[in-house]
Computed example of a mutant assay.
Amino acid sequence: MATTESMKARDVMHAGTQCVGENQTLLDASRMMRDLNVGCVPICGSDDRLKGMITDRDIVVRCCAEGREPASVMASEFAGELHWIDAEAPITETLEIMETHQIKRLPVIDVRNGHRLVGMISEANLARNIPDEQLAEFVERVYAA
């Protein structure tokens, strides 16, 4: 394993991330999450570029709890603020972005190869790749009130 100082986002990410299309429904997104056994999927446009992220919590709290029908709501409505990391960025920068914005999943973009989505970094990826002390600090900052 590389040292934390030399690790890049690419070294830690889960590759092969699948997107829900911006013109697909939240029902499509929820089925994709079920089939992939994940709690979040990226939203991609017809140009294959990352447009946002949708979580299972978004679907429940921002759609169902408001009385909206997931089969009639487009994923693009939930794109929201987007944070991402370049695949070649140091893992320390990844941690900084996730901690600052208190996010648990971060899309990885290959800026040098057409600005395409190449993976996702989650807490589980971090837990497998960074020292316990650094992980504890991350958890404390992300879950702070």
Score class of each variant (00 low, 15 high):
93 E>M: 09
132 D>W: 11
137 E>A: 15
125 N>M: 03
51 K>F: 08
6 S>C: 06
30 S>A: 14
78 F>T: 02
6 S>E: 15
138 F>V: 00
24 Q>N: 11
120 M>I: 14
128 R>A: 12
47 D>C: 10
130 I>K: 04
7 M>L: 15
9 A>R: 07
54 I>T: 13
94 T>N: 03
138 F>T: 02
66 E>M: 13
121 I>E: 05
26 L>P: 01
10 R>N: 11
83 H>P: 03
60 V>E: 02
131 P>N: 13
31 R>T: 10
60 V>Q: 11
108 V>N: 02
98 M>A: 08
117 L>Y: 03
31 R>L: 14
12 V>Q: 02
27 L>V: 02
119 G>E: 06
77 E>D: 13
141 R>I: 01
136 A>P: 00
76 S>E: 14
49 R>N: 12
120 M>Y: 04
9 A>N: 09
72 S>L: 14
53 M>K: 01
123 E>Y: 09
2 A>G: 00
121 I>K: 04
21 G>V: 04
13 M>W: 06
37 N>E: 15
14 H>A: 11
45 G>A: 10
76 S>H: 15
105 R>T: 08
92 T>Y: 11
1 M>H: 13
41 V>W: 04
106 L>D: 02
61 V>L: 12
28 D>V: 04
74 M>E: 13
12 V>R: 00
65 A>V: 05
2 A>L: 15
31 R>E: 12
79 A>C: 09
76 S>N: 14
70 P>R: 05
20 V>L: 07
39 G>V: 01
132 D>M: 13
43 I>F: 08
53 M>P: 02
40 C>R: 05
117 L>H: 06
58 D>Q: 07
103 I>Y: 07
16 G>S: 07
63 C>H: 05
123 E>N: 00
131 P>L: 08
30 S>W: 02
107 P>K: 01
81 E>K: 12
145 A>F: 11
36 L>K: 14
104 K>W: 10
90 P>A: 09
64 C>S: 06
13 M>A: 02
